[in-house]
Amino acid sequence: MRNARNASYLQVNHEIRRIFAEKGVILRPSHEAYREFKWTRAHFGQKPKEGYFIWVREQVDSPIFTCIAISSPKVSQTLRNLVVIEESIKAEICSTCNATKTGLCGNHMGHLKVILKENSELKLRHHHTWGKGDTVASSLTFSLGKGARLSHVYRCQTAPKTLKTDLKTTLEACSSASFEIAVLARGGNVNMRDSTFLNGDGSSATMRLRTIADKNSRIDARSKMIANGAGKGHLDCMGMLLSKNSTIDVVPELLNKNKDATLTHEASIGKISEEALNYLRSRGLTEDEAIDLIVKGFLGEEMPFKYKGRVLPSKVYM
């Protein structure tokens, strides 16, 4: 496995292959953390069977890598992951979940809860790569304390047969969250829900959602921003249809309960601009190469995972 040696947590099918934490970070399998740290039980909800617990208690310089892979046919994972960042600590987590090859027909069900304590900061990059026969369901809960900051990039360049995501974020005073979510579906069904609650005064959030549907895909996305406190929120939902037999249904929703809050949104769904395509072809790219470049640009630039100056692939290879 090319990138596994740098992983802080590596799980293949149901087996933990590596677990390693630098000083200042507590990293345990979820079921051990549930037993060892009683306070985590309320956050796990129910007793976990598999998954990780990351508790960043002191400042660490290197990013924490987690890799969860399916490498055998018909494996069904049910993961309960918990991340806690202590007060005023800055952390970066690079996380990959993937099938190591197509045709495994795996099932990946992941529950991730992230708690950012007062004035802490987390950059979380999450990459999914699946095969056409896989089914994936993810629920993510982010809880931001006062002054906490979150940057979450979720990218699924090859969506599975079915992908279901449910994201819920709560923000206390003066905290901020930035989401960049990009999904490319080719022959799959994608169902995405996100709700962002601006509970504290001075809280702010932006949700940037990019979806591309190709080859008989259906994408259904509901993105909601709720202002309870005097915060600022913005939804930016854009979709691109690459084939006639695909559909994208995006509903941005704003609910404002505070007269001092500001919520805005923009949304559009369209096809690739013919003009842009011809322009790139006039630079020598074939039509397929031009589409590929436009699609990658639309989804957003993929920032490489770096560890101690080295670039790591955003997928577990076996």
Partner: peptide, 23 residues
């Protein structure tokens, strides 16, 4: 096709080149 003409050595500088977001 356009790209074949480019391969042969012909090209065009556009009057109004389009914006290509993300690239």
């Amino acid at each position: 096709p356009i790209e074949e003409r480019v391969k042969l050595g012909m090209t065009l500088a556009f009057q109004h080149p389009p914006a290509i977001r993300g690239v």
